[in-house]
Amino acid sequence: MDSSEIYSVDAVYKALSKVYDPELDEPITRLGFVREVKIGDSVEVVISTSTYWCSPNFIYMILEDARREISRALGIDPKRVRVYIRGHHDEDRINDCVNRGERFENCYRSETWRGIEDLYRIFLEKRLIRRLYGFIKIATRYGLSLQEIAGLRRGDVIDLEDLIVIRSGSKEIRVLDSSDIAIIRSYVSLVKELIPAGEDLVIGVGSGKPIVEELETLLRTRGRAIDLGFTLNSELCRLLLESRISREAGSL
């Protein structure tokens, strides 16, 4: 059987939609980073980012995630998945290392102390806080108090495709707005990904203070600043990528 019959381009895109730019909290497919998908004996993906200068460590995370997600989704050996960054100042080294399955700290042996796992975790936490902030904003807008939000269990959020129902005591909230639904869904899915077995819905804010106080602070300070930071980064990235693509098409 011809391999292109086994792996569809759609399946590759679907796998890539699970790969997030850690600095932007958006999937690389939505950011327009995916430039080419080729299917032959192996799967080849080419991505470019908004600038020639993106930090090598974040590019590395994106490419490693892409390789893993594709091989997992298609059920093939990672060796048969080749992912490339194009138009980057360090592309030769990064492409070579990532596709050999080399760890970041070995690829940049003389310039690192350790791996990029800590960095990955820091940005995962920021993404969690950002999504939690979005969730709290929506839930309070629909009339839930912070006390009620703090007490929510995962089973209290019922996702019915075009509608999300949130139950808190005798209250029942029906969320119909599609952008609100997307934000709530993105928060809940990250919670489940991070702690698959738990029941609590509100996670990531345990510094010892009462949780309602934590949520209030998050809403007014850290969460709002993190949310704005991600929003600005994404917007700049999108604008720069658009400008870059049109400039390169005109080969300036």
Binding site: T51, H89, R244, R247
Partner: peptide, 17 residues
């Protein structure tokens, strides 16, 4: 390559906003 990469990136900032 690096110098062009630098000023091109500036130019993208300039044009995009």
């Amino acid at each position: 390559d690096l110098a062009k990469g630098w000023i091109d990136c500036f130019y993208d900032y300039h044009r995009s906003l």
